[in-house]
């Protein structure tokens, strides 16, 4: 199923990926080919099959709900591109223009 340029732009927006015009065209073509291959799955009748939602063969165990030691804040902030006052700093979330 061929994707349109609008499809690609919509997916890129959802994935938070800024793409160049050249990338959009390349991905339109490549994703169409890959989806075409993937559509092979539609030939199987799975109406009576349960989806595999867990890989673990045994029941997972629950742990006690007790707080443990956390990583030191300064260790975590050290890797941040921008941090101040013990917090991560980011550009405005809301449009602040009048």
């Amino acid at each position: 199923m061929p994707l349109s340029r609008e499809d690609v732009e919509h997916i890129a927006l959802l994935a938070r990926l800024h793409l160049t015009a050249e990338e959009k065209e390349r991905y339109r073509e490549q994703l169409s080919n890959i989806l075409d291959h993937i559509s092979k799955l539609q030939e199987l009748d799975t109406s009576s099959v349960q989806p595999m939602s867990s890989v673990v063969v045994e029941q997972s165990r629950l742990r006690e709900d007790v707080a443990g030691p956390a990583m030191p804040r300064e260790d975590l902030l050290r890797n941040a591109p921008d941090a101040a006052d013990g917090q991560f700093r980011v550009p405005p979330v809301l449009d602040t223009s009048p």
Partner: peptide, 27 residues
């Protein structure tokens, strides 16, 4: 703004195969 910072960072920071798979997965 925040969303554009996300998208620019990810658009430049990820290579072609990662972007391709993120697009497939998101779709």
């Amino acid at each position: 703004n925040l969303i554009d910072m996300f998208s620019r960072t990810r658009g430049q920071g990820f290579g072609p195969e990662v972007k391709r798979r993120l697009m497939i997965g998101t779709y």
